[in-house]
Design a protein around this nucleic acid. Structure first.
Lengths: 220, 220
DNA sequence: CCGATCCTGTCAGTCATTTGTCAGCTTCTC
DNA sequence: GAGAAGCTGACAAATGACTGACAGGATCGG
């Protein structure tokens, strides 16, 4: 899961970023609205944490522009000005959630996860896939009721496939969501993780759709 | 366990804080409602001790605001005005317990511990972990029936893991709950405590989930 | 107030696990 | 059957965790 933190206060940005990382997200930080606008156009995020009081391009304007462009990623607004009217304005502009500053980082991560799940059209943190169960909150995987030791990367890959189980996910997209855009990993890295996951979870959990990508569950 | 004491009478605040520290809590003190409101948003507490008669933002209003915002930490109200209606009002506003002044510090700490346990979904103060038993009230640990000398920090770490034993706790979260948010400890500090605890309790009590964090109990 | 003792954070070295890459192989598609 | 796409075992580099030693600071007893 990639999260973009758009926040000019470095202290808060670090705090938020650390919390999200601890919650299993991969985070990028941007300090002003114009840069965020630029990146929002070229990159795909699973979640955006947006401070309204950012320089160079107002947060609310940025939010409206993104929505006008048809960008659908979930956006969680942060704002020092926690008035009711602000809140309404933010939600109406297309934000998915609103968190007034100051806030607790645990609440932030909880809401972040809720947004991710909602955006994926699922409401449960506990998922069942044949003999495999995945608990996104506790970050544990079971097979036939027995815990399976998965590594952080394996878990993130599995979680991403799980949240997009209604479609086939292409390797470049996985690459993009597991690592930042910066890192230049070979596409083979994904295949290696898939192999390791299949060894742990059984061969039928992750299906390959040759030429397209990967998908979860059995296909007829 | 982090506790926030919101109390304007310095004498009482010191008393309460000292008692909680002696009971193994990490305490912060705040003298007025507005500051408390601010901090309640940015920091994560395991318990709040709240005097109703604080300046600048009434305790009851503060309490209601927190609950309206969805803050779930357990709150114990202190009040000089120990009337029944007050008590009811406090509980209805979302407090978890109510203690009229004057009170005995022993009762305060006892209730504080009970609240912590209840918030963690546990009712017992005495926990068994293989050969290890932990008494959260007396703050003593036994191994095979023999007392083990654990230091305050070690006990707090153990207690926090115990109260969250159904999940894996990440080092940044431990850092947050063992020390204040202010302190800039290295993550290594946690590892050092873990090592010392393991030496005392045996290697299998605290499990490491590499890349995720720590958990209590044996994994099959 | 002073010394002794204990607690605890940091550092550095070591060890273990995770993960990316490569090379060779298998499977699929046309 | 040839070429492309995907799989997988082996290896090495990167990362994360463990631990012994040490020192500053807190605490305690006198």
């Amino acid at each position: 899961m990639r999260a973009r933190v758009v926040e000019d206060d470095q202290r808060i940005a670090d705090l938020v970023s650390a919390a999200l990382r601890a919650a299993g997200f991969l985070t990028d930080m941007i300090g002003d609205g114009e840069t965020a606008w630029f990146h929002g156009g070229t990159e795909d995020y699973d979640l955006v944490i947006l401070d309204l009081g950012i320089p160079r391009l107002d947060g609310l304007t940025l939010l409206k522009r993104w929505r006008a462009e048809g960008r659908g990623f979930p956006i969680l607004i942060l704002s020092a000005r926690g008035t009711w009217s602000e809140r309404v304005e933010g939600i109406e502009a297309g934000a998915d959630d609103y968190l007034p500053k100051p806030f607790m980082v645990e609440e932030l991560t909880a809401r972040a996860r809720a947004l991710i799940r909602r955006a994926a059209g699922q409401s449960q943190a506990l998922h069942q896939l044949g003999a495999i169960s995945v608990d996104l909150n506790r970050m544990v995987v079971h097979r036939d009721g027995l815990p399976v030791a998965v590594t952080p990367l394996e878990f993130r890959l599995l979680a991403y496939l799980l949240l997009n189980r209604d479609r086939t996910v292409a390797p470049p997209e996985l690459l993009d969501h597991l690592y930042g855009t910066e890192d230049g990993r070979e596409a083979n890295a994904i295949e290696a993780i898939i192999t390791r996951l299949r060894r742990k979870l059984g061969p039928s959990v992750i299906q390959t759709r040759r030429g397209f990508g990967y998908t979860l569950g059995a296909d007829p």
